[in-house]
Amino acid sequence: MDPFVVLVLCLSCLLLLSIWRQSSGRGKLPPGPTPLPVIGNILQIDIKDVSKSLTNLSKIYGPVFTLYFGLERMVVLHGYEVVKEALIDLGEEFSGRGHFPLAERANRGFGIVFSNGKRWKEIRRFSLMTLRNFGMGKRSIEDRVQEEARCLVEELRKTKASPCDPTFILGCAPCNVICSIIFQKRFDYKDQQFLNLMEKLNENIRIVSTPWIQICNNFPTIIDYFPGTHNKLLKNLAFMESDILEKVKEHQESMDINNPRDFIDCFLIKMEKEKQNQQSEFTIENLVITAADLLGAGTETTSTTLRYALLLLLKHPEVTAKVQEEIERVIGRNRSPCMQDRGHMPYTDAVVHEVQRYIDLIPTSLPHAVTCDVKFRNYLIPKGTTILTSLTSVLHDNKEFPNPEMFDPRHFLDEGGNFKKSNYFMPFSAGKRICVGEGLARMELFLFLTFILQNFNLKSLIDPKDLDTTPVVNGFASVPPFYQLCFIPV
């Protein structure tokens, strides 16, 4: 058959498939802009700032609406009420993970971030239990974070109060905490193996944040037939998995079943207990991918939040002064901060919360999916439909947070200066898919920041009023603009 005829037939089939998918069930789905064949609503979305586009569309179609990214149908949730109703009140029905062709290629359905069903539930339950087990290797997770915080302070001392970009050092600290939990080992910041790991993690975040990856996920045929950065992403992930597998083999040879040292040991012990169960989800494949998931999810998000926190503290020296006064009063100079201190430091706690609220790190979270046909607000959402959640619409709700575009710790303080919780605080998402490392991340943010401010004054290279804190939105995360500062020993 003539190649031209084959091409026309293929394009015609794709067009018909697109029209059929977009028209099927439209009477039951939430409203939304009319999609174009094949490309859907992509032309109506700013790929570099999806969150802003969703906010604009919500003003037209309401808090629940339908979009098509290519052939992929998505239902968008915008605003606290619908997000709570879906992710919390109907948590089980909305607990699936959205379709990610690239991740599915890399992870093969294993791990904790992109798995679904029984596998996801069992691996998540085990990971939560293990991360909360403060007795691994007779050292609590808090001990590990405190140790890394001391190392971080010593690295900052080496800058000798000269101007520096904190990106690298602030990236090393949370990565080392995860390494300590998974591998029972922290690395020197100049260790070549550690630097290679950091390089792969950072490069992957840069790649994932590009519009090209959005295109690959919406048109998965590209993955096999086109060159691009997605190939580098898959190569980096394969490198990390190979490295983790080597460490798993080392653990198998040296493990003491009665004295687990780290996450890998705990997983291997669980595998041993379930070795007679042919349906067990505790396999080497799941261990390797879960460890890679924890490394990827637990490094860049925390380091970016820390980097943004220091920029905001530079911009608002009056806030920094209040935090340091609270540190001096509650902790002093002669001991290290600990998590028990947080309950006695409402202002510092409010500042950490406000940093996370203000920066809105992951504006749309990772997409969910419905696990069955769901009736939601008089609409029928078919099983498997991807759910896109606007966390921006919750964290920047102007009824809950007056002047949401302003950095103001009073958003989390009552009139008496006591810490005030808010149900709208969802930087880790909400419901059954809430970030498994939430507790660890909150511990790291509090301890790293208090250790830094206990030991250093922060000095800006320019007038604080002239510092730009506008986030650089890159399609996946909101990151701070480049800046330098000086760490002046107190």
Rank of each mutant, 00 (worst) to 15 (best):
R105V: 08
V330K: 09
R73P: 14
F100V: 10
I452Q: 04
L43K: 06
L71C: 15
I123H: 03
D143N: 09
H344A: 12
L170K: 00
R333T: 14
Y80H: 09
N176M: 04
L447I: 15
K28H: 14
G417R: 07
L287S: 01
S429V: 02
G431N: 01
N231G: 09
R139W: 15
R119M: 08
L233P: 04
A309I: 06
F226D: 03
V323K: 00
G298F: 04
N378F: 03
L201G: 04
P101H: 11
K160I: 09
K421H: 15
H251A: 05
K270G: 06
G417N: 15
I182W: 00
W120K: 03
F110P: 03
I387N: 00
D397F: 02
A350T: 01
A106F: 15
I462P: 09
F425N: 05
H396W: 15
K232H: 10
E325S: 13
E93P: 11
G431I: 02
V75D: 00
V436E: 02
L152S: 01
L54T: 02
T290N: 02
L7R: 04
Y68L: 05
F376S: 00
V113A: 13
E274I: 07
E155G: 07
P63E: 13
I47A: 14
I215F: 14
Y379S: 03
F94P: 02
D349K: 09
L312G: 01
F451C: 15
F428L: 02
N259L: 07
A86E: 02
V248R: 02
H78L: 08
G431P: 01
H316V: 05
R442S: 13
R97D: 03
P489H: 05
L380C: 12
D165Q: 04
S18F: 15
T290E: 03
T66A: 03
S58E: 05
G417W: 07
I452T: 08
H368A: 02
K160V: 10
T167V: 07
F65N: 03
E438Y: 10
N277T: 12
E272T: 12
S180C: 05
F456A: 00
V208N: 11
V370Y: 01
T392M: 03
N277D: 12
H396C: 08
R132I: 09
